[in-house]
Measured scan of single mutants.
Amino acid sequence: MSIQHFRVALIPFFAAFCLPVFAHPETLVKVKDAEDQLGARVGYIELDLNSGKILESFRPEERFPMMSTFKVLLCGAVLSRVDAGQEQLGRRIHYSQNDLVEYSPVTEKHLTDGMTVRELCSAAITMSDNTAANLLLTTIGGPKELTAFLHNMGDHVTRLDRWEPELNEAIPNDERDTTMPAAMATTLRKLLTGELLTLASRQQLIDWMEADKVAGPLLRSALPAGWFIADKSGAGERGSRGIIAALGPDGKPSRIVVIYTTGSQATMDERNRQIAEIGASLIKHW
Score class of each variant (00 low, 15 high):
residue 216 G to T: 09
residue 245 A to V: 04
residue 224 P to T: 06
residue 286 W to S: 01
residue 180 M to A: 14
residue 172 P to R: 11
residue 145 E to L: 09
residue 47 L to D: 01
residue 231 D to R: 03
residue 39 G to A: 13
residue 241 R to Q: 04
residue 268 M to P: 07
residue 198 T to D: 10
residue 163 W to M: 13
residue 220 R to V: 03
residue 79 L to N: 02
residue 67 M to C: 13
residue 195 E to G: 14
residue 93 I to A: 04
residue 27 T to I: 08
residue 269 D to C: 11
residue 44 Y to F: 11
residue 266 A to S: 13
residue 182 A to M: 15
residue 142 G to W: 01
residue 198 T to A: 11
residue 277 E to M: 10
residue 2 S to V: 08
residue 8 V to E: 10
residue 87 E to W: 05
residue 186 T to F: 15
residue 31 V to N: 02
residue 241 R to W: 02
residue 248 G to F: 01
residue 65 P to I: 03
residue 88 Q to Y: 13
residue 241 R to D: 02
residue 130 N to D: 05
residue 69 T to R: 00
residue 255 R to P: 00
residue 223 L to V: 13
residue 163 W to L: 13
residue 52 G to M: 06
residue 235 A to E: 03
residue 140 I to D: 02
residue 277 E to T: 13
residue 227 W to A: 02
residue 39 G to V: 10
residue 136 L to V: 08
residue 36 D to C: 15
residue 248 G to L: 00
residue 111 L to V: 15
residue 285 H to M: 09
residue 42 V to P: 00
residue 186 T to C: 15
residue 193 T to S: 15
residue 243 I to C: 08
residue 219 L to R: 03
residue 260 Y to P: 00
residue 163 W to I: 10
residue 34 A to S: 14
residue 27 T to Q: 06
residue 81 R to H: 10
residue 214 V to C: 06
residue 77 A to V: 11
residue 126 T to Y: 04
residue 91 R to A: 07
residue 216 G to E: 07
residue 57 S to C: 09
residue 37 Q to K: 15
residue 43 G to L: 00
residue 266 A to I: 06
residue 103 Y to N: 06
residue 210 E to M: 10
residue 235 A to T: 06
residue 2 S to F: 11
residue 119 E to T: 06
residue 42 V to H: 02
residue 253 P to C: 11
residue 269 D to H: 12
residue 57 S to V: 10
residue 28 L to T: 09
residue 121 C to L: 05
residue 249 P to M: 08
residue 268 M to I: 10
residue 131 T to E: 03
residue 7 R to Y: 09
residue 97 Q to A: 13
residue 59 R to G: 04
residue 114 G to E: 04
residue 283 I to F: 11
residue 246 A to I: 13
residue 169 E to W: 14
residue 3 I to L: 12
residue 105 P to E: 05
residue 213 K to E: 10
residue 147 T to I: 08
residue 35 E to L: 02
residue 126 T to Q: 09
residue 161 D to N: 08
residue 255 R to L: 05
residue 226 G to H: 11
residue 3 I to Q: 13
residue 275 I to H: 01
residue 169 E to V: 12
residue 143 P to T: 07
residue 132 A to T: 02
residue 252 K to G: 10
residue 107 T to I: 05
residue 189 R to P: 02
residue 184 M to E: 01
residue 269 D to V: 12
residue 10 L to S: 10
residue 2 S to D: 07
residue 248 G to A: 03
residue 51 S to L: 05
residue 7 R to C: 08
residue 21 V to N: 06
residue 234 G to D: 00
residue 8 V to M: 11
residue 167 L to W: 01
residue 235 A to F: 02
residue 283 I to K: 05
residue 46 E to A: 10
residue 86 Q to S: 12
residue 18 C to W: 12
residue 17 F to L: 09
residue 269 D to P: 10
residue 222 A to K: 15
residue 270 E to L: 10
residue 161 D to Y: 04
residue 47 L to G: 03
residue 214 V to H: 06
residue 39 G to S: 14
residue 167 L to R: 02
residue 170 A to F: 11
residue 153 M to C: 15
residue 230 A to I: 07
residue 89 L to H: 05
residue 162 R to W: 02
residue 149 F to I: 10
residue 29 V to R: 08
residue 133 A to G: 12
residue 227 W to N: 01
residue 253 P to A: 13
residue 56 E to M: 08
residue 85 G to H: 11
residue 73 L to S: 08
residue 40 A to R: 03
residue 180 M to I: 12
residue 238 R to E: 08
residue 235 A to Q: 04
residue 21 V to R: 05
residue 209 M to N: 00
residue 19 L to T: 15
residue 40 A to G: 13
residue 220 R to L: 03
residue 94 H to K: 14
residue 192 L to D: 01
residue 47 L to V: 13
residue 122 S to Y: 14
residue 238 R to G: 11
residue 208 W to I: 03
residue 223 L to Q: 05
residue 163 W to Y: 12
residue 63 R to F: 06
residue 271 R to L: 12
residue 225 A to S: 13
residue 115 M to Y: 03
residue 199 L to T: 10
residue 281 S to C: 12
residue 221 S to Q: 12
residue 32 K to S: 12
residue 260 Y to K: 00
residue 161 D to G: 03
residue 108 E to K: 12
residue 38 L to H: 07
residue 90 G to D: 14
residue 89 L to E: 06
residue 243 I to T: 04
residue 37 Q to H: 12
residue 233 S to P: 05
residue 268 M to S: 07
residue 178 T to R: 02
residue 235 A to L: 05
residue 90 G to K: 14
residue 230 A to V: 06
residue 79 L to M: 11
residue 247 L to M: 15
residue 118 R to L: 12
residue 215 A to Q: 05
residue 265 Q to Y: 12
residue 73 L to F: 08
residue 92 R to Y: 10
residue 48 D to Q: 08
residue 246 A to P: 00
residue 70 F to Y: 05
residue 170 A to E: 06
residue 30 K to M: 12
residue 21 V to M: 05
residue 16 A to R: 04
residue 241 R to S: 06
residue 67 M to H: 07
residue 192 L to E: 02
residue 125 I to F: 02
residue 162 R to S: 10
residue 22 F to G: 10
residue 159 R to C: 06
residue 187 T to M: 08
residue 53 K to P: 03
residue 251 G to S: 12
residue 58 F to D: 02
residue 260 Y to L: 10
residue 230 A to K: 00
residue 231 D to S: 05
residue 114 G to N: 05
residue 204 Q to P: 02
residue 214 V to N: 07
residue 228 F to S: 07
residue 127 M to G: 06
residue 81 R to S: 09
residue 14 F to R: 01
residue 195 E to Q: 13
residue 3 I to P: 13
residue 53 K to S: 10
residue 214 V to T: 09
residue 283 I to S: 06
residue 275 I to Y: 05
residue 42 V to W: 09
residue 90 G to R: 10
residue 230 A to S: 06
residue 150 L to D: 01
residue 229 I to H: 02
residue 236 G to T: 05
residue 120 L to N: 02
residue 202 R to T: 14
residue 229 I to A: 05
residue 76 G to L: 04
residue 218 L to G: 04
residue 266 A to H: 10
residue 78 V to H: 03
residue 69 T to P: 04
residue 122 S to I: 14
residue 176 R to S: 09
residue 59 R to D: 02
residue 207 D to E: 14
residue 86 Q to Y: 12
residue 63 R to H: 08
residue 31 V to W: 02
residue 112 T to L: 15
residue 108 E to H: 10
residue 102 E to R: 10
residue 265 Q to M: 12
residue 8 V to F: 14
residue 178 T to C: 07
residue 96 S to L: 11
residue 31 V to E: 01
residue 5 H to I: 06
residue 275 I to W: 02
residue 85 G to P: 01
residue 42 V to M: 10
residue 257 V to M: 05
residue 31 V to H: 01
residue 16 A to H: 15
residue 156 H to W: 11
residue 281 S to R: 12
residue 144 K to W: 09
residue 81 R to K: 13
residue 101 V to A: 10
residue 48 D to K: 04
residue 139 T to E: 15
residue 12 P to S: 12
residue 130 N to H: 00
residue 212 D to N: 08
residue 210 E to S: 10
residue 140 I to N: 04
residue 13 F to H: 06
residue 209 M to Y: 00
residue 12 P to N: 11
residue 57 S to M: 13
residue 29 V to C: 13
residue 116 T to G: 04
residue 43 G to W: 00
residue 228 F to L: 06
residue 6 F to A: 07
residue 200 A to M: 11
residue 211 A to T: 10
residue 150 L to I: 14
residue 167 L to F: 04
residue 130 N to G: 05
residue 100 L to W: 05
residue 216 G to V: 07
residue 6 F to L: 11
residue 211 A to Q: 14
residue 221 S to H: 12
residue 120 L to Y: 02
residue 32 K to A: 14
residue 87 E to S: 06
residue 204 Q to N: 14
residue 158 T to R: 00
residue 73 L to I: 15
residue 211 A to C: 15
residue 50 N to D: 15
residue 86 Q to R: 12
residue 30 K to H: 08
residue 99 D to I: 09
residue 239 G to R: 02
residue 69 T to W: 00
residue 283 I to P: 02
residue 205 L to Y: 02
residue 95 Y to W: 10
residue 278 I to K: 00
residue 64 F to D: 00
residue 198 T to P: 07
residue 155 D to P: 01
residue 127 M to P: 01
residue 4 Q to I: 12
residue 62 E to N: 07
residue 42 V to T: 06
residue 85 G to A: 09
residue 152 N to Q: 15
residue 208 W to E: 03
residue 239 G to T: 02
residue 162 R to V: 02
residue 181 P to E: 00
residue 176 R to N: 08
residue 94 H to S: 11
residue 230 A to N: 01
residue 200 A to S: 14
residue 262 T to A: 09
residue 237 E to N: 14
residue 124 A to H: 00
residue 258 V to G: 04
residue 248 G to H: 04
residue 221 S to M: 11
residue 99 D to A: 10
residue 176 R to V: 06
residue 14 F to A: 11
residue 104 S to C: 07
residue 207 D to K: 12
residue 12 P to M: 14
residue 285 H to T: 15
residue 134 N to D: 06
residue 214 V to G: 06
residue 106 V to N: 06
residue 174 D to M: 04
residue 274 Q to Y: 10
residue 257 V to Y: 05
residue 266 A to Y: 08
residue 147 T to V: 11
residue 182 A to L: 15
residue 222 A to S: 14
residue 56 E to D: 12
residue 272 N to C: 04
residue 9 A to N: 09
residue 129 D to S: 01
residue 100 L to D: 02
residue 192 L to G: 03
residue 283 I to G: 04
residue 194 G to K: 09
residue 221 S to L: 10
residue 108 E to N: 10
residue 5 H to D: 09
residue 6 F to I: 10
residue 239 G to D: 02
residue 139 T to A: 15
